[in-house]
Design a protein around this nucleic acid. Structure first.
Lengths: 101, 101
DNA sequence: TAGGTATTTAGGTAAATACCTAAATTTGTG
DNA sequence: CACAAATTTAGGTATTTACCTAAATACCTA
């Protein structure tokens, strides 16, 4: 785990928010958008962009960065890319801060 | 704890290094500089700047930021400002990432 | 293959961050 | 008080980040 890369991926309010939203999607996204929601996949880019009230390209890049930092897991299915949290990596980061930093 | 502020204070390699150095000062600073070292105070700005191989003003500002984010505790004594880690805040951050993020 | 939806990539501007040097400030001391 | 040491504040340039819009790509379905 490259801690600086992970921390940089977290150093933006929108990206922090996205992590929070993905923790409990039903609390944050319209039910309508989650009709076919599967925890194994997560939420698609455009739904996240809408929630963030930001452009799709911007959010697409954010998600990609967080995924590169291993904080999110991306799954491409048909024309959608779904993102979910990588809980393991998040706990690993917490451990690292607690023990090693 | 303002998580974004804390994370931003961590999002730079030098600042991460400083936290590591202050964890075990005797492992990282010359013994000579630590002759009067007290864990209750920490290490002074210029010793940290020398270790970082960066200018004193730059490091002074870094330390101030980290202190504002509560990651470090500053103590002014005579003409020196000493910095030590705020272990409580670091554990609090780890908890926050583990449980709330 | 044509056309539609979702996403990504490119390319641009504005703001923030990373540094530095010089100047100002704080604090101790002869 | 004058001078020295440590630090902070100011002010500047270069790089990175935060966004956007437009264009390109991916993948579906008729």
């Amino acid at each position: 785990m490259k801690i600086l890369e992970v921390i940089k991926a977290l150093s933006n309010q929108t990206r922090l928010d996205i992590l929070t939203w993905l923790k409990e999607p039903f609390d944050y996204f319209p039910a309508k958008e989650l009709i076919d929601y599967k925890a194994s996949l997560g939420v698609c880019v455009s739904d996240i962009a809408k929630k963030a009230k930001m452009s799709i390209p911007t959010v697409s890049v954010y998600l990609k960065n967080m995924s590169a930092a291993n904080l999110l897991i991306a799954t491409r299915k048909d024309q959608w890319t779904y993102y979910k949290r990588n809980e393991k990596a998040i706990q690993q980061l917490a451990q690292l801060i607690s023990k090693k930093l």
